[in-house]
Design a protein around this nucleic acid. Sequence first.
DNA 1: TCGTGTTGTGCAATCGATTGCATAACACTT
DNA 2: AAGTGTTATGCAATCGATTGCACAACACGA
Lengths: 352, 352
Amino acid sequence: MSKNPKKVKTMADIARLAGVSPSTASRALRNSPLISQETIDRVKSIAAEHAYRPHLGARNLRTKKSNVIVLILPFNYADAEVLANPYIFKIVGTIGSKLREHGYDLLLSKMDDINELIDDRYIHSGIAEGAVILGRGDNNPEKIQKLVRTGVPFVILGPKLDNQNYCSVGINNLASACTAVKHLANMGRRRIAIVSDNQENQLSEPYLRFQGYLKALNDLNMPIDQNLIAISTHSGNSGYDAVQQLLSTAPDVDGIFVATSDVVAISVLQALKIAGKRVPEDVAIIGFDNIDLCDFTSPPLTSISQRLQDGVADSLVERLLDQIKGDKADSLMLDGTLVIRQSCGSLIKDFA
Amino acid sequence: MSKNPKKVKTMADIARLAGVSPSTASRALRNSPLISQETIDRVKSIAAEHAYRPHLGARNLRTKKSNVIVLILPFNYADAEVLANPYIFKIVGTIGSKLREHGYDLLLSKMDDINELIDDRYIHSGIAEGAVILGRGDNNPEKIQKLVRTGVPFVILGPKLDNQNYCSVGINNLASACTAVKHLANMGRRRIAIVSDNQENQLSEPYLRFQGYLKALNDLNMPIDQNLIAISTHSGNSGYDAVQQLLSTAPDVDGIFVATSDVVAISVLQALKIAGKRVPEDVAIIGFDNIDLCDFTSPPLTSISQRLQDGVADSLVERLLDQIKGDKADSLMLDGTLVIRQSCGSLIKDFA
DNA sequence: TCGTGTTGTGCAATCGATTGCATAACACTT
DNA sequence: AAGTGTTATGCAATCGATTGCACAACACGA
């Protein structure tokens, strides 16, 4: 509309055009009760006419807010393996959506060095106000404690640990794994294997899931057999190796809990078929994450939902914003939900 | 180390401790040749001792740089359908990784209103310096032209259109689709169907892929049969409906080019199996995107690679940074690569 | 000894919006 | 008419780092 909108950039320009001071213009644009309605209307209409937008960098500098949250991904950007997991993507989308409702943008980062990233590079430098950390990854407790001491607001997506002095939101990995394994047993499986990834870190999710597996067997008075334990990476083809191993060491395996992820579970499914096993007739499978694709494998894959849409994302965002406001935030741990499809041999279609 | 690191926050603090002026401190920290080596060393060691980090918001305000690029996702954050597509995630990871190498961070956004987002909310307000737009989405050419006129640096990931006056980087969708269909024909298929999504926008990728399908049939002197044309959404189960339709209107279909995405192609694969069709013996399939999962379906899915890792991401980032520097950037359109696996009935394992 | 360079530093303005404080304009009471 | 409020506005400092310009200190040749 206007001939040269390029000329009008700052609030001072708007103020000049409206015949008021910059402070009045600032207040008018923010509907300050200090300013008369007449002035507010005039300033606003001039601002609108020139498509004026405040410079958020300048505002942020003054107000010490940035309206940005860093999202720390549990891996290197270039790490195609884990990045290919649709579950991570779902997390990004769901949490991003919630944060946006509160006026926050999401900045992507990776977990090369959690201290460097959060403390120095992002928060103290004014880029972001807080962080969402997707899982503890390989970070040892000391590293997280260093982060806690900086006072940076953050929430970790993951299970709550014993004596934890920071905020996390997630599902009970141990209990959920236990539920999955017990379900396989309830369906009549007696030789239940686990496929899991690196458990070096005793506080990690893989470790907790493995403990859940052990607990279930223990509760059921079933023996623990090393031949039924296989290790995977997060790669989409690591299920092949795991199946090969299991079929050679325990050819009578009749159930597999794939604790790593659904992505690996799907490759386990394929590998079993290639090996001539029927799923679920010969071998039942349960995965972890409940990705959308579970509905479309054959047979559809039973899996544990981390309840992103169903409490976790909302609570996580709420608790992060609480901390930014200066309040303390408690951790939250929900029970995972077993979403039953055909791969586990159940006839039940859905499970409350 | 130091007793109260909290007290030292700004460059003025460092300057005071070093006994120099803030300007000298600033120059020292940036290795200005104006400052003596002795002073540089002293200032730097004091800064290091106090773990000082410059406030990037303040720097950005002064230098008018933000080192942030907005990534416009081709859908609403909350739109689970498309978000579940692992291909999008791969894009984010690959482009994010490249940008990081150049010191840029990635801010996520969605394409609710391309004008609002880029022109007002991000670039002119100083949050970001440029944008990467994942596909043209539903934006009509006028909208993109408005964006062009604002002078905002951006690159669209997608094919180059005729008479295009802005920068895009991507593969030739029409030619790639044509290649796929011709490959099916070369494998002896004579009743080749297409599953494609919304083609309302005549400049969109679905439209171009459909044109490629028509061109291939035309080049091969094969008839165009409306019964061989099915529409899908991006949902992971929309392949079911498409297959149902095709099998009823054209029961003799022996090849399907799933132009929408591999995610849909996978559901087409499942649907065919449920319908009792063997793949590739009865029906051959080719998908689009070449997602990692293609290796793990049964049979593995032949697909068209958009060459993200292989030219597209690098070129896109390079051209965006050129524009930010003030240079013009040409568009680039590569040929997609047909990655041959078993689903198309080929015996060839890989294709150069 | 007086210019003329060279080198190193500091002053103060700047980026653009916000905000504490002062004050002007006006009404209204006693 | 003087005093007390109320309402609306402007001045100037501020957030923290950067940078053009001025200038001090010193060396050097003439």
